[in-house]
């Protein structure tokens, strides 16, 4: 039981961060506006959660130019994907055992 609990990650214990990771698990790269649209949050709110995930090294930020427009895209790192997969498995396990 203790090992399951240790896989539950506090970083993902928030709707927005959980959402960002879920989206990046199934999409290779996603830009800021797309995240904003999907999660229905304000710019500042989204930016702070992105920063938190980046500091944990769960996501990578890629800045590039499309023509003259700057475009920032995000993708999950290998560490991020593995940690999130563990979190997901732990959630499923906890729900199963509580039933």
């Amino acid at each position: 039981m203790t090992s399951i609990i240790s896989d539950i990650n506090k970083t993902f214990d928030h709707r927005i961060r959980l959402g960002i990771m879920s989206i990046l698990m199934v999409n290779d790269t996603v830009d800021f506006n797309r995240l904003k649209e999907l999660l229905d949050v304000t710019d500042g709110n989204l930016a702070s959660h992105i920063k938190a995930l980046e500091q944990s090294e769960y996501i990578d930020i890629k800045k590039q130019f499309i023509g003259k427009k700057p475009n920032t895209t995000y993708e999950a790192t290998l560490l991020g994907k593995q940690t999130f997969a563990k979190h997901l498995a732990a959630l499923e396990q906890l729900i199963k055992t509580s039933k």
């Binding site: 993902f12 879920s22 989206i23 698990m25 199934v26 999907l38 959630l91 906890l94």
Partner: peptide
Amino acid sequence: ESEKYLAQLQEIQSMMQKSS
């Protein structure tokens, strides 16, 4: 607690589907 986890799981599932 398990209700919270279930809600999280559902949120993950819906986000994955909606985004892809």
